[in-house]
Design a binder for these strands. Structure first.
Length: 661
RNA sequence: GCGAGCGUAGCUCAGUCUGGUAGAGCAUCACCUUGCCAAGGUGAACGUCGAGGGUUCGAAUCCCUUCGCUCGCUCCA
């Protein structure tokens, strides 16, 4: 992390991103669009480098992972099978008093007495109404008006009350006064209209507190010095319509639309609805069979994909951290169920802490999960994110999705990350590595009706050789796990037992739905982490000795947007410039290079430091042979140390390529 | 989406209260200068003051609406 940790560090980083062309706001000239960001020239290079490195590390350099590139719009059924249509449309309620938002399904049911108010009017308005009928001020004092209004539970009832009072008043009150009064009341009411509000009081709380809460509610809505109208009470049992904190009524549940909807084809009817994918993973599951049939892979193996995903985030926040359009780098790594491992190898290997080393045939899901967590940490370390800058979060049983066995989040300590109760910065999520069992493939099998099973020759053979008692014990355990799975997934009770038995039967014949470990990383979040991690400020005395703020982006050479800057020492010597151009052309086919001859040499170094360029090559008079022994040598400057070494032009390219590996 | 704060040049900001027709520093570009870490000189370019409407003889300034940003609630890669 950058050393000076002022509160506005993030602002400075955002400003640098724009100033140097890392990140721009999308559609800025039209006022921008919330939650969408563009990468400028330096950002585009940076992101490309990162994605390429991920792809290389995760697929090309591994024998057991292949790639996929699927469409963003897929069959809408996919999102029913995955559960996104349901979970991404959670109904939300707002507290009418505090505006606090609740997920409707997470509100704890409340019981007690609900105090209901039909509306409220301001004291002044009532006073005025009373004044209008001044002639009978005695009878129509404010209190009486309130008494008249206050007990009516509905508008209709109020009118009855008014009529009643008027009937009583007849005889000594003129027709004119009665009309005046009636219309005065109407006037008051028309200024507020119906504004129903309720407060739920738990057993034993005084009614006054409900009234106080209601007064607050009406006061917030601009009714000065409110007078409550139409109080009534009602016994309430197990209701989720009230805020558990203050008893205030909530808005009715409004479904939240977190997936981007679109229409496929020229008509835009309900039947044409499709979604922009909210994650890239589902395409991998949906194409699992095709990949399996064509890629000559055996379980365990993985399918990797990099691609855009879209979520209608409630609140895009923290610069690019939570965007509505973002890119994911996801791997689905398919493994055998633990029971299959046990059948084949006798037992499942459970490794100790740390990286468990090269994959072993007898690894169960825990070993694989741990392996991928550690592999991913190595990846981050390899691009300059040290363990100290990262954080880890092991999801608790409550946080886990019902089908997940475990999930480890890899966090990065961003400048905007919050501190926990102990004052430690925990960080925000870059990647989640989930052990998802066979949930996803099974769901697609269930919804598509197409088998997602894998036939495991080795397993079939193993079961054939297994002692009957051991076999029965294993299958019994497998059945129990399946039973649990199917129950959680809402299968009909009568189906559960047969389905579970069926799955066990299939297992004994060598068939199973593979389980999956899912390392899912946010590309844009990683870019942001790399930018924050690289940002450095230093006070350095300039040539006059006055300290100057220097900003440097300390990117790891592997991912730096520009690898090397090439500079003629002086611009006004054509022979220096020409030689520098030659070197520029020499390097250009192999890496991103920038040629710069503007301003003083120091200024050019500083400019490249701010862009995060790790190396600088300067062509001086010695390059041209002023000192014959230095002919055809250049200085190679290291960004982080500012040290310069003299290297021959012949050595330059191999040396740089080595440093960039 | 709701609440609070903010929006003036590429960047950082002054000017807004008290209306009179827009400024500074840095950055950018050109030329000169420069013999290794943001040197210096000369010149240039750069803002319909977030947008729209209103009040006014006159609006960056006052009022309304809208968009965007930041923070909180909520969601997550």
């Amino acid at each position: 992390m950058a050393e000076p940790k002022q509160p506005d560090l993030m602002e400075k980083i955002v400003s640098l991103c724009k100033r140097r062309g890392f990140v721009f706001q999308s559609s800025e000239i039209y006022g921008g669009i919330n939650g969408f960001w563009d990468y400028g020239p330096l950002g585009a290079e940076l992101k490309r480098n990162v994605k390429e490195l991920w792809w290389r590390t995760m697929t090309r350099q591994r024998e057991d992972v292949v790639g996929l590139e699927a469409t963003i719009i897929m069959h809408p059924q996919i999102w029913r099978a995955s559960g996104h249509v349901d979970t991404f449309s959670d109904p939300m309620c707002d507290c009418l008093l505090t505006k606090k938002r609740f997920r409707a399904d997470q509100i704890e049911p409340q019981s007690g007495t609900a105090y209901r108010f039909w509306t409220a009017v301001s004291f002044d308005a009532l006073q005025n109404a009373a004044l209008k009928v001044q002639a009978s001020a005695d009878l129509w004092s404010r209190d009486k008006v309130i008494a008249c209004l206050g007990t009516a539970k509905t508008r209709e009832e109020l009118h009855d009350r008014v009529r009643e009072s008027l009937a009583q008043a007849k005889g000594w009150m003129s027709e004119e006064h009665l009309t005046t009064f009636h219309s005065a009341i109407e006037d008051v009411l028309s200024t507020v209209g119906d504004l129903e509000f309720s407060v739920l009081l738990p057993q034993g709380k005084p009614p006054e507190s409900a009234r106080r809460t209601a007064l607050q509610f009406y006061a917030q809505r601009g009714i000065k010095d409110p007078v409550l109208i139409g109080e009534s009470t009602e016994k309430i049992e197990n209701s989720t319509r009230f805020n558990p904190d203050n008893g205030s009524l909530l808005t009715p549940p409004v479904p939240f639309n977190l997936m981007f909807k679109t229409y496929v084809g020229p008509t835009a009817t309900e039947a044409d609805v499709a979604y922009l994918r909210p994650e890239t993973a589902q395409a991998i599951f949906a194409q699992f069979k095709n990949v399996l049939d064509t890629a000559r892979q055996k379980v365990p193996f993985g399918i990797g994909q990099i691609g855009k995903a879209f979520r209608n985030e409630v609140t895009p926040r923290n610069f690019t951290f939570r965007s509505r359009e973002f890119e994911q780098m996801e791997l689905e790594f398919f493994i055998k169920p633990d029971e299959a491992i046990e059948a084949i190898h006798g037992a499942v290997i459970t490794p100790g802490p740390g990286h468990p080393g090269e994959p072993q045939p007898a690894w169960g899901w825990q070993a694989w999960h741990q392996y991928w967590v550690e592999e991913r940490v190595r990846f981050y370390e390899g691009i300059g994110l040290s363990r100290e800058t990262l954080g880890f979060h092991h999801q608790t049983a409550e946080e886990l999705a019902h089908y997940a066995r475990a999930c480890t989040d890899i966090l990065f300590k961003f400048p905007f990350s919050k501190k926990d109760a102990q004052g430690n910065v925990t960080g925000d999520e870059l990647e989640g590595i989930a052990a998802r069992g066979d949930f996803d493939l099974s769901q697609h099998q269930r919804h598509s009706g197409k088998p997602m099973e894998y036939f495991d020759d080795e397993l079939k053979g193993a079961f054939a050789k297994l002692a009957e008692a051991k076999k029965q014990e294993l299958l019994e355990r497998f059945t129990a796990v399946k039973r649990g799975d199917f129950t959680k997934r809402g299968y009909k009770p009568e189906e559960i037992e047969t389905k579970a038995r069926e799955a066990a039967e299939r297992l004994s014949k060598g068939f199973y739905v593979p389980h999956v470990i899912e390392p899912s990383a946010g590309a844009d979040r990683l870019i942001l982490a790399l930018i924050c991690n690289a940002y450095r400020e230093e006070m350095i005395p300039d040539s006059k000795g006055t300290p100057e703020l220097r900003v440097m982006m300390k990117f790891h050479p592997r991912i730096a947007p520009v690898k090397v800057g090439v500079f003629p020492l002086l611009k006004n010597r054509p022979e220096l410039v020409a030689k520098a151009r030659q070197i520029f052309e020499l390097l250009r086919p192999h890496m991103t290079v920038q040629f710069d001859d503007a301003g003083s040499i120091g200024k050019r170094y500083a400019r490249q430091d701010e862009a995060g360029t790790p190396f600088g090559v300067t062509i001086d008079f010695d390059t041209l042979g002023e000192k014959p022994e230095l002919l055809d040598t250049v200085t190679l400057r290291d960004r982080d140390t500012t040290q310069q070494t003299r290297v021959t032009i012949g050595e330059l390219l191999p040396l740089l390529l080595e440093k960039l590996r």
